[in-house]
Simulated scan of single mutants.
Amino acid sequence: MRTPQTGGAPFRPQRREPPINLPPVVLAALGVLFAIFLIQEFALGYATNLMIWQEFGFLPARYVHPLGEQGLSWLWSPLTYSLLHGGWSHIIFNAIWLAIFGAPVARRIGAVRFLTLWLTSAVASAFFFAATDWGAVSVLIGASGVVSAYMGAACRFVFAGGRFLPQAHLGRRLSISEVFADPTARAFVLVWLVGNLLVAVGVSFVGISAASIAWQAHVGGFLFGFLAFPLFDVKTPRTLVF
């Protein structure tokens, strides 16, 4: 009895793509954000959460007085505020944009530099918020400043050659002048900045009060990611397709 044979190329089983095709560091970041939120939402009471927001949220008023009078929260709050969220819509909105823009940034610069960008952009957006509202007693929480930094960073390469996810991380890094010379990149940056400036003057979107949106942190994070990205993009992608 002969063994059946087939013509043409040998059979290779088709590789199955994972259902959620995000870099591990982005999945880990999302997991941490949701774990913290779910603990606050279901395991802690309002009084405890209020204490957490005050202790680990960013409060510009802390820096008006001598730092020793405020305990040590002035030291960690410029980072920890980015891990806290005030409601389901807050965390879901940030999670969606983190997945969209954090993924190409993570694929391009790797996990370590992705996390370093998180830490530095959190600080940058917090103190931009403080500088524009010095001494304010309002508490800043949420990852939106960091997400805005990933948006700004992504603008430097995702529009190169008109490429889109998941190949966007292979694009050539554009100079600032090249970003504004590209119609798509220019439109994205201008629409994003104008939207946040409208919030600054009191315009609300999709039923969300402008007073509850920290536009200063958004703008500060975006500018940091956009301008400082070359400091993190120190390794050219292995494969560049032009």
Rank of each mutant, 00 (worst) to 15 (best):
F93R: 09
V219E: 00
R62E: 09
P18T: 09
L38A: 14
A185W: 04
V179F: 11
G171Y: 01
P24T: 12
L227Q: 05
R186T: 12
S204N: 08
L33H: 15
V139H: 02
F157K: 00
R107V: 08
G102Q: 03
D182M: 04
A181Q: 14
L59Q: 14
W118T: 08
A181Y: 10
A124L: 00
I96S: 00
Q14F: 12
Q216D: 06
H218C: 06
T132Q: 08
M1S: 15
R107A: 07
F127I: 06
Y63M: 06
A126K: 01
G71F: 06
L83V: 11
A126H: 02
S209C: 07
A99R: 03
T6E: 01
D233K: 03
F159P: 02
A103Q: 05
A29M: 12
L27V: 12
A111F: 04
T184R: 14
G45R: 05
S212R: 09
F129H: 14
H85N: 11
P230H: 02
P104F: 07
Q54A: 03
F101D: 04
P13I: 15
S138F: 10
A187H: 14
F159C: 04
A47I: 13
G68V: 09
N49M: 01
T239F: 13
A154M: 03
E17I: 10
F180E: 02
F37W: 09
I91S: 00
P24Q: 10
W192K: 07
V194S: 04
L190P: 10
L44A: 07
L79T: 05
M1W: 13
G31S: 02
R163C: 06
L119I: 07
V158P: 05
L198Y: 08
A47M: 12
D182V: 06
A200Q: 10
G161A: 05
P60G: 01
R12E: 12
G68H: 09
R2N: 12
A28M: 03
A228L: 14
R113K: 11
A99G: 09
Y81R: 00
G195I: 04
A35C: 11
N94H: 04
Q5M: 15
D233A: 08
R62A: 08
F129M: 14
G145C: 08
R163I: 15
G87Y: 02
V194E: 02
